[in-house]
Simulated scan of single mutants.
Amino acid sequence: MFFKRHVWFVLLATLLLSKLASASTLLVMGDSLSAAHNMRPEVGWVSLLQNQLSETHPAIKVVNASVSGETTQGGLARFDKLLSEHQPRWVILELGANDALRGYPLTQTSQNLETMIEQAHQSNAQVLLIGNQIPQNFGKRYTEMFFNLYKNIAADYQLAYVPFMLQGVALNKELMQADGLHPNKAGQPIVLETIFPHLQPLLSDSE
């Protein structure tokens, strides 16, 4: 009898610890803008976020599942497994720029993002949606549709939303890499300063 009770207690404690661990996970689903493209990972804005949270929210673990070159279709293909593995309490969703740069239909981009949002909600995770912009040479109509895509999704799903993650960075050559698309090391803290005020209320609501 003692042995059975001991086994039951160990199983229960393991389950509780697992739930506590997963409840404090923040999953970042992004592309090269979140994967510290062409830099050491520790200087990217996601690593800087983890450093900041280690002081203010030490129980939160940041998992960076961002992949350079990722599209919404690629992210969607990986997302369900990541949700199952990490059971995050929060998801930062930063995808879509590569869809636009490749000229993919924005209806498909929207559908992929919406599916990921719905999957996250089904897993009881809160979502912060990160918006972006693309160069004007893609045409005014397409660039405006792409920018508004995120705003419309955020409104439909009542999400926390960052309109443009490279605000204050994209047009400053001193903060951008030579390709003109990715922030350099100096630009990463500013990216985090743009994102964090939109994330902080989600973290506060869970305390």
Rank of each mutant, 00 (worst) to 15 (best):
Q167A: 08
F2R: 00
R40V: 13
S32N: 01
R102M: 12
P201K: 14
A154M: 11
S34L: 02
Q158M: 13
S110G: 03
A154L: 11
G75K: 08
A35Q: 12
R40M: 04
N132T: 11
P163W: 14
L93Y: 07
P197N: 10
Q200T: 06
G96C: 03
L16W: 14
L49D: 02
P41T: 14
A21W: 10
E70V: 09
L49R: 00
L12V: 15
E94W: 05
L82D: 15
Y104K: 05
G139N: 11
Q200Y: 07
K185N: 10
D80M: 09
G131F: 15
A21M: 04
D205W: 10
K173S: 11
K4G: 08
I130H: 06
L149I: 00
A120V: 03
D80R: 06
E144T: 12
M176A: 04
E42C: 02
F146H: 08
P183F: 01
G75W: 10
H182A: 09
H57M: 06
Q50H: 05
S206Q: 07
S18Y: 08
S24E: 15
I195C: 06
L95D: 01
L128T: 09
V91C: 12
H57L: 06
E55D: 04
T72A: 14
T143S: 15
L26Q: 05
Y142W: 13
V91R: 08
L16Y: 10
A120G: 13
L159W: 07
L175H: 03
I195V: 15
